[in-house]
Amino acid sequence: MSIICTEENRCLTVHIQGELDHHRARELMTQLDREINCALPRKLELDLSGLTFTDSSGIALLLRTYRNVQELGGTMCVRNTPQQAKKVFWAAGLQHIIPFEGV
């Protein structure tokens, strides 16, 4: 599990790679928080193309990140959501809260 961040014009793109579960969630949240607080993005793009597995830990991570970005006055979208992750997020109705692109 790792994240790769790129930033341009206060648009922060975060690629999440590997398997996301409770074991990895807290560390990933800390890392994401740090990146967001550092970049103060107007727009955050979460690219999940490298996410090979997620359970409900991913739901908590997305909701929390979405809240953080909104509090800073930014927007957020999620891209390239794999089938498995989509099924988990849709079970929680996340598609009604967070903008998902290309699903």
């Binding site: 409770h22 969630a25 807290r26 949240m29 359970d55 409900s56 830990s57 739901i59 908590a60 991570l61 909701l63 929390r64 099924k87 988990v88 079970a91 929680a92």
Partner: peptide, 22 residues
């Protein structure tokens, strides 16, 4: 119940809901 949790902020309260639906 969906979204009910006694866990921390890294928990979503969706565990049983996902087990049920999957």
């Amino acid at each position: 119940v969906p979204m009910f949790t006694t866990g921390g902020e890294e928990r979503s309260g969706m565990g049983f809901t996902i087990m049920e639906s999957f």
